[in-house]
């Protein structure tokens, strides 16, 4: 099965959390890389979702740009993520995907 995993290799399909307005959350996870596809975030509201290869300096916006993962096809590669929550209160969700 082609799934996202935590850094211990445990499959992840949904993750929920409680956050505060304008909070910045950093986390790492394993991304299943596929040829000719990009890591993207879709249906994002009230947040900014960015990622980068571990060790890279620049964060890449996963909505506007995405990250081409072709070079790592068929491998699970660890990425760093930065989720910046917006000012609004309420329930929001988004999908990370490799598409």
């Amino acid at each position: 099965m082609i799934v996202f995993k935590d850094t211990n290799g445990t499959p992840l399909s949904t993750y929920s959390m409680q956050v505060q307005p304008n909070q910045v959350i950093l986390f790492n996870e394993l991304v299943p890389c596929i040829a000719n596809r990009s890591l993207r975030a879709v249906s994002v509201e009230n947040a900014t979702v960015e990622a980068r290869f571990p060790g890279d300096v620049d964060w890449i916006d996963l909505v506007a740009d995405g990250i081409d993962v072709s070079a790592f096809a068929l491998q699970d590669v660890e990425f760093e993520f930065r989720l910046t929550i917006g000012p609004l209160k309420g329930r929001y969700s988004f999908d990370l995907t490799v598409t």
Binding site: Y15, S16, Q18, V19, A47, I85, G86, F94, L96, T99
Partner: peptide, 12 residues
């Protein structure tokens, strides 16, 4: 297509 859904409650 792998999908990981994040749900976040902005609670105040």
């Amino acid at each position: 297509t792998p999908v990981l859904t994040f749900i976040f409650d902005v609670i105040g």
